[in-house]
Structures are given as C-alpha cells and as structure tokens.
C-alpha cells in the first residue's frame, strides 16, 4: 500500500501539521510505503502531478483557517479535482488541527474534504479534528503526556487506513485543562510581542486608517 502524507500547512518548517504527520507515520511505517508531499503554496508541486496514479491513500494534514481549509489548500484541491479521473481511486483521510481547544471546531473543514472527495470521485475515509493545536509541535510524543489523546486518535486512524475502513470523524483535544491552555496561549502572545519590541498592550491596538500600499 502506498500512502501519501500531505502536509498542507503553509509553513515549510515546524508546524502542528508536520508534527501530526510524523506521529501518524510512526504508526504506519513498516506496514505501508510512505511518500511525503508538501502543499505549502497555492500551486501544486510537480511531484504530485507526476505520479498520482499509484497512490492508494491520501492523508491531508492542515491547520484550521477561519473555520475552514486554508485558501492555498482550496486552490490545490481545485487543481487536483481532475487528477484521479483515470486509474485507481485513492481513499482520502484528513487531519485538521485548530488553535482552539475543541477539536469539534474542525468539523466543517473535514466536511469540506468530504465534499471535495465527492466532486473528485474519491473515497472519503474520515478524519480527525484536533483541538489545542497551538502547542502540538512543542509537545513530546509520549502516551503519558498532554499529547496522549491525540496519539491515541492517530494510532486508531492508522489502523483504519491500513484496513481501508471508513469510520466517522473523531474529535480530540490535548490532555491539558482548557483554562491552562488559554492562559499559556495568552502568555505566549505577550512573550512574542515583547520579543518584537512592543508592549503587551499593543496586542489590542487598532490601527489608524491605513496607508494604501504601495505608498503614494
């Protein structure tokens, strides 16, 4: 079985999507041939267009952007709509992480993947909505740590992918109290804005009427 692990985060370096795919690949390795593909831009990489025919499973991982899929990924999905018209029909799975605590907030984004599958003639396998995505790439992949429920869901998804099952979507959050997650996020924003030479008060700044770009 050939599985394409598609990192659809706009970030090319560290990201929650990359971290989730790394964890998933640990559960899949040895049982399938894994191909890593990055969709970090609005244009499909040539790698994807050259050999779509021999891929059995596509696993997309992306962040939740404004309650849906990131704009650059929508652009890629439109370009991919016709890519699988001939040849075997791959199964598609999705992993959507959101900065909010509740994984259920990714429900609509997973539905968009499912609707894309219907339009592209692919088989929707199901997905995971992961809450608490803000800290995922900094958490150890330990089954006793805050990432434990996420790892459990990924392990379950790996089993379903290998069995070619089509379960319902799963929604998980990190094992970390919501009020502490909120506090940690807010401390993080204050640390970041200080590192940029501004004050935490500036986080709530409302800009004055902007100068059109490029300036006259």
């Amino acid at each position: 079985m050939k599985i394409a692990l598609i990192n659809a985060s706009p970030k090319t370096g560290r990201s929650a999507s990359a971290s989730l795919l790394a964890d998933l690949s640990a559960f899949l390795s040895g049982s399938a041939s894994l191909v890593e593909i990055g969709l970090h831009d609005a244009t499909l990489p040539g790698q994807f267009l050259q050999e779509p025919g021999d891929i059995d499973v596509l696993v997309f991982a992306c962040p939740l952007y404004v309650d849906g899929l990131p704009g650059h990924l929508l652009s890629c999905l439109l370009q991919l709509e016709q890519a699988f018209v001939t040849g075997p029909v791959p199964a598609v799975y999705g992993i959507v992480n959101c900065g909010f605590y509740e994984g259920i907030q990714a429900e609509t984004a997973l539905e968009l993947f499912e609707n894309w599958c219907r339009k592209a003639g692919l088989v929707w396998g199901g997905g995971i909505g992961v809450g608490g995505g803000g800290g995922l790439d900094q958490m150890p992949s330990s089954k006793n740590g805050p990432k434990a429920p996420v790892l459990h869901a990924l392990e379950q998804l790996a089993g379903e992918i290998l069995q070619k099952e089509s379960p319902q979507n799963h929604y998980v959050s990190v094992a970390f109290p919501r009020f502490l997650y909120k506090l940690a996020a807010q401390m993080g924003w204050r640390r970041s804005i200080r590192a940029n030479g501004a004050s935490p008060k500036d986080l709530g700044r409302t800009p004055s009427a902007p100068t059109p770009y490029p300036p006259a």
Binding site: A42, V66, L69, G71, H72, L74, S75, L77, E111, L112
Partner: peptide, 11 residues
C-alpha cells in the same frame, strides 16, 4: 467550492 468560499475570497 465544496461548501467553502473560493481560494481568493478565503485567502
């Protein structure tokens, strides 16, 4: 687009 706005509007 699949129940979403288009790539331009989403971006």
């Amino acid at each position: 687009c699949y129940g979403s706005v288009s790539p331009f509007v989403k971006m």
